[in-house]
Design a protein around this nucleic acid. Structure first.
Length: 295
DNA sequence: AAGACGAAAGTGGTTGA
DNA sequence: TCAACAACTTTCGTCTT
């Protein structure tokens, strides 16, 4: 491991990095940027004397991935130059094979290709970690295979899959953010999201307000102390069961608002409400319940 | 003048008969 | 399928800084 371990996110300078051992990733909780990816085992079991040597001994190919329509495993007939080395007869054979391959590319695959392009677009717009993108692609692929896209726009299913993937990876984005990135209406995303997750039997835990704190805090340029204070507030609130049944974003917003007040980094309710995607009224209601208003 | 507060009515979604 | 319901929003008037 290099001595100068990454401490800050190069993208937003955030300090809120999370290390997910299982996925082998270090990612920034603020902006979702993946700083270290696939950090499984950097050591090689062979020594490399020149580049060709390494190529030959490498035992793996490109990683298998759901973000390519055929999981990156497909073959293409007659690519590269080998086609031109053949005689006329053989060449015809290859053309036939090509044609076949084209036919094998059914509607499903073409749909996937298009959808995954859209998925990539939205996910990079939201700066989502690669792992989330993969998950979303997986969900979408399953949805297509089960014919769940029929009657719905491809884009909305993509958005729904992304939303679900974000929640599963504890980097939740609000429906508003997804809506802005994908150009699909909020309720439409919500509807397809619910439908798809139910049909596929994907269980998603209600998102934890704390998962929103880091991102909101950095959007409001709040100090790290304020941030951790608000997490503290959140934990207390959760113990007194003030959080159940409430929208997580509203709670996160209220906790941040209170924490900012206590640390003399006052933000208006309006400002906090805007980044959290709730109204001032909701913040007021929540923070009244938190019990920090008296005294 | 801007922000905080609260009441009242409206919205979209869930639940239970 | 419908009505009751909870959470949240919108809107608006009043109070505070």
């Amino acid at each position: 491991m290099p001595k100068d371990m990454v401490k800050k996110c190069p993208e937003c300078q955030g300090i809120n990095l999370s290390w997910n051992r299982e996925k082998g990733e270090i990612s920034c909780k603020d902006c979702g940027l993946v700083i270290e990816d696939k950090m499984i085992d950097f050591t090689q079991e062979w020594r490399e004397f020149d580049s060709e040597d390494g190529e030959n001994r490498r035992r793996t190919g490109a990683p298998m991935t759901y973000t390519q329509f055929d999981q990156g495993l497909g073959t293409e007939v007659g690519q590269k130059g080998d086609l031109f080395k053949l005689g006329d007869k053989d060449r015809n054979k290859f053309f036939r094979l090509r044609k076949w391959q084209y036919r094998i590319s059914t509607a499903i695959e073409r749909n996937l290709k298009l959808a995954l392009a859209e998925l990539k677009r939205v996910s990079s717009y939201l700066k989502l970690p690669r792992s989330v993108e993969e998950e979303a692609a997986r969900i979408y692929t399953l949805a297509v295979q089960r014919g769940l896209v029929r009657g719905r726009s491809m884009e909305s299913v993509v958005a729904g899959a992304l939303y679900a993937a974000c929640r599963r990876h504890d980097v939740p984005r609000t429906l508003d953010e997804l809506s802005e990135a994908s150009g699909i209406e909020k309720k439409e995303i919500g509807r397809t999201y619910r439908f798809v997750t139910r049909e596929l039997g994907i269980t998603i835990l209600p998102s934890n307000p704390a998962d929103y704190i880091a991102r909101f805090a950095s959007a409001l340029k709040l100090s790290a102390e304020t941030q951790s204070k608000s997490v503290e507030i959140l934990e207390r609130a959760q113990k007194s069961e003030l959080t159940s049944g409430r929208g997580p974003t509203g709670i996160a917003a209220a906790a941040l608002y209170v924490a900012a007040l206590m640390h003399g980094e006052k933000r208006t309710q309006r400002e906090v409400a805007d980044v959290a995607g709730v109204t001032e009224v909701t913040i007021r209601n929540r923070y009244k319940e938190l019990g920090y208003s008296e005294r």
